[in-house]
Computed example of a mutant assay.
Amino acid sequence: MQDLLLVGIGTGNPDHLTREGVEAIRRADLILIPRKGAGKSDLAGLRETIINDVTDEPPRIAYFDIPQRRTDDGYLRGVDAWHDAIATRWQAAMDTCPQAGVVALLVWGDPSLYDSSLRIAARLNPQPHTRVIPGITALQALTAAHAIPVNELGAPFMVTTGRQLRDTGWPQGTDTAMIMLDGECSFQTLDAAQYDIWWGAYVGMAQEILISGPLDEVSEQIRTTREHARADHGWIMDIYLLRRRRRGISR
């Protein structure tokens, strides 16, 4: 049985790789690297840089292309079929080196937080022994970059997605929400006068962009900054924290 190591590599800063992550990369006989198209080639390049930085003799690398996700059959069905297709490509990449006892996949952020690596791994056949090496999350990197706590004193917070914010509105039972996986600037669906926002793109990377302030004052700045950054780089990863104001008090 092969060992499959899902190694969280943080949000783009090679210094965020943990010692456990370094050891996992050094142990690997084969490392899988996804390719997401020419416009996102620097994501594969960053993984290659991390591998070269922490190994004296880099292990064998197998590349695989990420398939396009269908959107014509509903969101959940589309994602489920997409995961099946990715698992097939993982398996084909692993089969290029059947003698590899330890296979590693370097996962952006952390494999256990809003990432589907574990769901995809469960589709592999034969089933490997899968182990997660936790990494720095975008949530941690964002709050550190803005030097803020994620929650107010003694209060809960919600981690959710842009889709959920658009479809169901503000989450009940909390004044603080961390929004991930939002390509639509879904904060625009809220009454901006009621919220403050801390937004970041490419958090932890050299091209990091941070904007914060009352949502009604910075919403358009974030939207246009995001649009321009995506055009410049060909891709964007962003995340933001929203906090509902209490009694009209900002920040």
Rank of each mutant, 00 (worst) to 15 (best):
L5C: 05
L6V: 04
L6I: 09
I9V: 15
I9Q: 10
T11H: 03
P14E: 15
H16G: 13
E20I: 02
E23W: 12
A28V: 13
D29E: 06
P34I: 02
K36H: 10
L43Q: 01
G45K: 01
G45M: 02
R47Y: 01
V54L: 08
P67A: 00
R69E: 04
D84V: 12
A87Q: 00
A87C: 04
T88R: 09
W90P: 00
Q91R: 01
M94I: 07
M94V: 00
A104C: 06
L106H: 05
W108Y: 09
P111F: 13
Y114G: 00
S117N: 09
A122T: 00
N125Y: 01
N125V: 05
G135N: 14
T137P: 07
L139I: 15
L139M: 14
L142F: 15
L142N: 14
H146I: 07
E152M: 04
L153N: 03
L153G: 02
L153A: 10
G162N: 08
R163N: 09
Q164E: 15
G169L: 11
T174P: 06
T176C: 11
M180I: 14
L181Y: 01
E184R: 09
C185A: 15
C185N: 15
Q188G: 11
L190Y: 04
Q194T: 06
Q194E: 13
Y195V: 02
I197G: 14
W198D: 09
A201M: 09
Y202N: 08
M205D: 03
V218S: 11
S219V: 00
S219H: 04
I222D: 13
T224Q: 14
T225N: 10
E227D: 14
A231Q: 15
H233I: 05
W235V: 09
R244K: 15
R245I: 06
R247Q: 15
G248L: 05
S250H: 14
